[in-house]
């Protein structure tokens, strides 16, 4: 490095880029392309080539297996329960945190982030320790013939836990940035709480919410660790799609394993596409609202 930060001219990034020698730029680009190729493009391509290795007929037949069908149905059911619940929790938490200053607010924020910090295996074990036969609530549940872990409720709980932060985390900064001026205005004009929520709050955050829902759904469908601990791996009953992929792979049924895995890969691609679209929309909305706010200030 010849230049020190102090004599670096305060210019736009584009200017600096032009100053870099051609070989530096070429190397950096090559490294990036190589990295993306090895870690993203190749594995993705390998999933689909492995899945289609014995032809499209075998590929499609993999989904007609009753166990595969049951796994897909269970995964859809779990995310159909977990995602809406997390939308409600996420909205409530984000609203409380963004709109109010209260004692314990930071604790709440940290708690929301907890599932990100905790390993998914631990998240699963928590429920085993709570609801297992020798857990805190196990004996009571057993007496009343209620099965939580090694059954659908446990899988839903574990999924809820690991996907909890996605919606709230997406909404908090958005709501903080937007401020509560519009809501206060509505209140002054005599709107009720629900009216404010449906007409102001929700429309304002709808794109951010959608973004959170997409991420939450992708994680709910793809979660492996936590679900693996509480599932019990009963075929056709408590196996989700990711667990089913593992089973097929362990049974040397590689084509079917990759075929089912390709479903998850497709889900990831769709998620990525939606996420990009929503991100673009959010950025444009924010720019617009910023511009209108700037325009309105005298």
């Amino acid at each position: 490095m010849k230049r020190t930060p102090t004599d670096m001219p305060p210019v736009a990034a584009t200017h600096v880029r032009e100053n870099d020698p051609r070989w530096v730029r070429a190397t950096l680009i090559a490294i990036t392309v190589l990295f993306l190729g090895i870690f993203l493009a190749l594995p993705l391509a390998s999933i689909f080539t492995e899945a289609l290795r014995k032809g499209i007929g075998v590929y499609l037949a993999s989904f007609r297996q009753p166990d595969a069908y049951a796994a897909i149905r269970l995964t859809l059911l779990v995310s159909a329960i977990a995602v809406p619940l997390n939308v409600v929790f996420g909205l409530a938490a984000a609203w409380a945190i963004a709109r109010f200053r209260f004692c314990g607010r930071n604790v709440l924020l940290t708690l929301i982030d907890l599932p990100f910090a905790v390993s998914p295996v631990i998240s699963g074990l928590i429920y085993v320790l709570l609801f297992g036969l020798h857990g805190w609530l196990g004996p009571w549940l057993n007496e009343h013939d209620l099965q939580v872990i090694f059954a659908v409720p446990g899988i839903v709980l574990a999924t809820l836990f690991v996907t909890f932060p996605f919606v709230a985390r997406e909404l908090i900064p958005l709501m903080e940035e937007q401020g509560s001026e519009e809501e206060l205005a509505a209140r002054v004009l005599g709107a009720s709480g629900w009216q404010i929520f449906w007409r102001i709050t929700l429309p304002n955050v709808r794109w951010g919410l959608l973004y959170g829902v997409i991420l939450c759904n992708a994680r709910a469908m793809g979660e492996f660790g936590a679900v693996s601990v509480v599932s019990g791996h009963i075929r056709g009953l408590t196996n989700t799609v990711p667990l089913h992929v593992e089973i097929l792979y362990n049974e040397y049924n590689f084509v079917a394993a990759f075929a089912v895995a390709s479903l998850l890969a497709l889900l990831a691609l769709v998620t990525l596409g939606l996420k990009t679209a929503v991100e673009w929309k959010v950025r444009r909305d924010r720019a617009e609202s910023a511009a209108s706010r700037e325009g309105s200030t005298p």
Binding site: V128, F131, G132, L133, H134, G135, G138, N142, Q147, I149, F150, G232, H233, I234, R235, G236, L237, I247, N250
Partner: peptide, 20 residues
Amino acid sequence: ILQSHGGSGKQARAVIDGLG
């Protein structure tokens, strides 16, 4: 007949924890 497979020790643990 439903099947569940896994490492033997792990499976025993699951039955102890309430896998039916």
